[in-house]
Computed example of a mutant assay.
Amino acid sequence: MENTVAQKLEALKKLQAIDSQLVEIKKIRGDLPEEVEDLEDEIAGYNTRITKFEEELTAYKETIKEHKASIKEYQERIAYLEDQQMNVRNNREYDAINKELEMLGLDTQVSEKRIREAKIAIEAKEEQIGMTKQMLDERQKDLDAKQVELKEILSETEVEEEKLLKQREKASKNIEERLLNAYNKIRINSSNGLAVVPVRRGACGGCFNAVPPQKQADIKEKRKIIVCEHCGRLMSDVEIVIEEEKKKTTRKRSVRRKKAE
């Protein structure tokens, strides 16, 4: 049997009450979960940067090693050629040896230059690593403190939150899928998390725009689900307390008039 409009609205009000309590729990946590997540991402970035710097450092050291090996080979070849230069038989052989010695000398200078450049780069990279590690340590301390704070808050609220989530799951089953989807969409898009609101003092309890008297009468009858024409929130009822206050005010005015007469 399909639920009446009144039953549907009551189920939505119950769900809204549960969601509002969950919102309050999230308010207690504040921005801590996001701050922790941001710090974790920042620290991961620093670790990635350090790894990259260390890989570059290793490459520079390998470059130095390779050029030192090349210089050793050049020196051995130079020593050999200088020895052979003493036994040349003609000017052609002498010139050929001199040309090769000259090329080996230039190759040695190039390798020495590459070694100097690599050493300078290593110093700069080690300084970058040191600074990054320092920033990493500072952010890690911030993260540790935030995690402790968040853990304390979670330990205080997780039992209540788990209970509310179970209640929410149970309450959601009592609402037809189409209506539940509409409720969730409105709630997610609203700034205060309210999708179901009453009429208070003649205005929408969500956006505070005036609700026409005829529409208020329709809301009271609960023959159909009515939404606010301004914010789209579901209108659950018109607060009776307000009506009683109006009646009391009217009675007081009547009494005053009678006394004046």
Rank of each mutant, 00 (worst) to 15 (best):
T58L: 09
Y80E: 06
R114H: 07
E117P: 09
R89D: 09
Y74F: 14
V110H: 12
V110K: 09
E100W: 01
E54G: 06
L136I: 02
I120M: 09
L104N: 05
Y60D: 15
I129M: 04
N91C: 00
L57Q: 13
Q140V: 01
E126D: 10
K61C: 03
E102G: 03
M135I: 01
E102F: 10
A59Q: 08
T58S: 14
E102V: 00
L81H: 12
D137I: 00
K133S: 09
A124F: 02
D142Y: 07
E123M: 06
E73C: 00
L104Q: 08
K141C: 03
K99W: 02
I129V: 15
D107Y: 13
N90D: 15
I64N: 00
Q84C: 04
I120S: 10
A79H: 03
Q134C: 02
I115W: 08
I120A: 13
A69D: 15
I115Q: 05
R49Q: 15
L104H: 07
M135T: 05
A121M: 08
K125R: 04
E127W: 02
T108W: 09
E123N: 13
Y94P: 00
Q128R: 09
L106K: 14
E126I: 01
I64C: 00
Q75G: 02
R92T: 04
Y94S: 05
G105P: 11
Q109L: 11
L81M: 07
E56I: 01
K141L: 12
Q75A: 05
M131N: 15
V110Q: 13
A69G: 10
E82Q: 14
Q85K: 12
K68A: 01
I78S: 03
K113A: 15
E100H: 04
K72M: 02
D137R: 06
K113N: 14
I129L: 05
A124E: 09
K141T: 07
E93Q: 13
Q109C: 07
E55A: 15
D142L: 13
Q140P: 03
